[in-house]
């Protein structure tokens, strides 16, 4: 863990109790034994299918779900918090520093509040400003940064389109001056023509305000364009983690490769030669033994079914992968 690591987790697990009675102690492990370092100032992408645990991991970093195992720390130069034990006044302070942007801008904004009140609410709840003038000043400042017109502030959310609403959600998340922002599928509900605009805005805010983003998405091409580091999750585990360039130029995990080949190409004549995945992600309540991906992996061998691979920091490039056969597959150019 280097000095400029903002979030660092070791063996992080999040489990939910799904037992139906007093003696039924079944646990659903949504996030299982994850090691991750998020560098300060980075745009960190987290990809995976639904059910992979990416949202739960993001919420664990915000202390919105209880961490049930392992360790996680937050360190931003001014403060250092242990996320597993954080409470009381320190937790309140942490809330200012870490914020969330939601997926659906239609559901995230109260229809009965003006845009000004929506953006000002976090300031008032956290007691960050001492007068109405100061609050208004802060609201106007952040609204301008998020490219909202000042006259918009007096209106209600229903008057706005999806893209504008998402900019309002972003302004609300950023008004308390957070250092760390989790953007959970924040462009998934938007049309492509608007999506590009919101992505460019997020990048701009990251640069201008020095915010670290954890960008959760199922869309690899969006991630490729915005993030500088990407981690791929499958069934609660991290299966691959690398810089965007490394990952997109030479994916090492068969799952990552399969995700790439599943993206529909704009070229109608591009018959995807690469393998398509059979089947679906298994239920987290009924996880397969060994490598979690072995039920769908085209390169499965007996070892995969018995022994779970760990995330290897293999060759000093920082490109990590959890697969028994990746070296072999890379040499055979099977991926």
């Amino acid at each position: 863990m280097s000095d400029d690591t903002l979030i660092s987790a070791r063996g992080l697990s999040v489990g939910f109790s799904i037992g139906k009675g007093l003696f039924d102690k079944r646990i659903l492990k949504a996030v299982d034994n994850v090691d991750i370092d998020i560098q300060s100032g980075s745009f960190f992408g987290l990809v995976g299918e639904s059910g992979s645990g990416k949202t739960t991991l993001g919420r664990a970093f915000l202390k919105a779900v209880t961490i049930t195992g392992g360790s996680a720390t937050y360190k931003d130069g001014e403060v250092e918090y242990d996320l597993t034990t954080l409470n009381g006044a320190k937790l309140k302070d942490f809330r200012k520093r870490a914020q969330l942007i939601f997926q659906d801008p239609y559901a995230a904004l109260s229809p009965r509040m003006t845009v000004r009140d929506i953006i000002a609410e976090p300031l008032e709840v956290m007691g960050l400003t001492s007068s109405r003038e100061e609050t208004d000043e802060r609201v106007r400042e952040i609204a301008a940064k998020c490219r909202l017109n000042l006259e918009h502030l007096r209106r209600f959310p229903h008057a706005f389109s999806g893209g504008q609403r998402q900019r309002i959600s972003i302004a609300r998340a950023l008004v308390s001056g957070p250092k760390f922002v989790v953007a959970d599928e924040s462009v998934a509900a938007l049309d492509v023509s608007i999506q590009a605009d919101v992505l460019n805005l997020l990048k701009e805010l990251q640069r201008d305000l020095g915010i670290t983003f954890l960008f959760i998405s199922h869309d690899l091409s969006v991630v490729a364009h915005t993030c500088d580091h990407v981690a791929v999750m499958y069934l609660g585990r991290l299966v691959e983690s690398a810089t965007t360039r490394q990952l997109f130029e030479a994916p090492r995990h068969p799952y990552t490769k399969a995700l790439f080949s599943a993206i529909p190409s704009l070229d109608p004549d591009d018959e995807k030669s690469a393998q398509k995945l059979e089947g679906e992600i298994p239920s987290p309540t009924n996880q397969p033994p060994g490598c979690k991906f072995h039920t769908r992996c085209p390169f499965v061998i007996d070892k995969c079914k018995a022994e779970e691979p760990v995330l290897e920091h293999a060759d000093g490039t920082g490109h990590e992968v959890a697969c028994h056969r990746w070296v072999e597959l890379m040499e055979q150019k099977a991926l």
Binding site: S161, G162, G163, Q164, D191, V192, S193, I194, Q195, A196, D197, L199, N200, K203, D219, L220, S221, V222, A224, H225, T244, R245, F248, F260, I263, L266
Partner: peptide, 22 residues
């Protein structure tokens, strides 16, 4: 629409949104 689409074979150039809303 085509220019706004994130493409995997071109990661260098920024995305080009269509200005404004429908």
């Amino acid at each position: 629409l085509i220019a706004a689409l994130p493409k995997l074979d071109d990661l260098e150039n920024p995305l080009l949104p269509i200005p404004g809303d429908i």
